[in-house]
């Protein structure tokens, strides 16, 4: 492809190519502090969605080693989002070394806090905020659980902030580096935040899962214990490769839910969520 770059995020290396210069330049800027991978685990392609779409209303298709048959192309101005979606897709469909959980993750003292929930639950925002308040940010999209050890491995890609979360993060983390604001994408407004320096420098360090949270944003403060069986079922739904891993996936996940306490938390705003997390963590 005419333009290409490579990025390593945690244990996964990507090679990203495009017909267009802009998405590759934007990725290079956003991921300037990340290591490269000379051989990639996955190839991502962002070609013009049709030959004439190189010139007229340019649009990028979302392609790679793994593809969805009906993935809609995005306007060139949203190339960073196309790259993010394509990279996620490769991991979700192709990665098998770890059990993948669709979750955010932060670490302190070698122990990991995992947060998983629907889009809008605030798990990305909470991880981003905690990552600038004494925790190491490990990821806002996937946390990777090693089947052999049960350890959590980081996937600290650029944090994908949506809609109101953009303002919250801009106010709370004014010193961090942000990407361009992408307006009116299929997922609303999006702005990427580069994770804090220690998140990138220490991205190969695993952590021991110690607490599992299921946050819900917009309710009065509440904490409810979640049993191992319920946590298991919720996490099978939050895993993109649980089925593909077969028995190995089952063992890894049952081991995780039996070992790690789980809580569902409701919170009205991010400050109370952070206070709640600190309380729960202290009481472990």
């Amino acid at each position: 492809m005419r333009h290409a770059t490579s990025i390593r995020v945690g244990p996964i290396g990507f090679r990203i190519g495009s017909d267009f210069a802009a998405p590759i330049a934007a990725l290079r800027a956003l991921y300037a502090d990340y290591p490269k991978s000379t051989i990639a685990h996955f190839s991502v392609r962002l070609p013009a969605s049709a030959p004439w779409r190189w010139l007229i209303r340019p649009a990028v298709a979302i392609e790679g080693d793994y593809m969805l048959p009906d993935a809609a192309p995005l306007p060139l101005a949203q190339g960073l989002l196309a790259a993010e979606m394509a990279m996620n897709l490769q991991v979700a469909l192709g990665h098998r070394r770890h059990l993948l959980l669709h979750a955010s993750c932060v670490e302190r003292d070698g122990r990991a806090l995992l947060m998983t929930g629907e889009s809008g639950s605030g798990k990305s925002t909470l991880a981003a905020l905690l990552g600038t308040r004494g925790w190491r940010f490990m990821g806002d999209e996937f946390v990777l659980i090693a089947p052999e050890s049960g350890d959590a491995y980081a996937f600290p890609r650029a944090i994908s902030l949506k809609n109101q979360a953009i303002n919250v993060a801009e106010r709370a983390c004014p010193t961090e580096r942000f990407g361009p604001r992408l307006i009116a994408t299929p997922k609303g407004d999006i702005r990427h935040m580069v994770p804090p320096a220690d998140a990138i420098a220490r991205m190969d360090e695993p952590a021991r899962p110690a607490l599992l949270l299921f946050p819900t944003f917009g309710e009065q403060r509440d904490v409810r214990p979640v049993g191992a069986a319920e946590a298991f079922v919720r996490l099978t739904q939050a895993s993109t490769n649980y089925t593909a891993l077969g028995e190995r996936g089952f063992r890894t996940l049952t081991d995780l839910v039996e070992r790690v306490p789980a809580r569902a938390i409701d919170y009205p705003d991010s400050d109370s969520a952070i206070a709640l997390v600190e309380t729960l963590w202290r009481d472990l």
């Binding site: 991978s37 051989i39 990639a40 192709g94 098998r96 070394r97 891993l245």
Partner: peptide, 12 residues
């Protein structure tokens, strides 16, 4: 890295 990719492919 190649060994990672090919191990995954064997498992798959």
């Amino acid at each position: 890295t190649v060994a990672d990719v090919l191990h995954d492919a064997r498992d798959a």
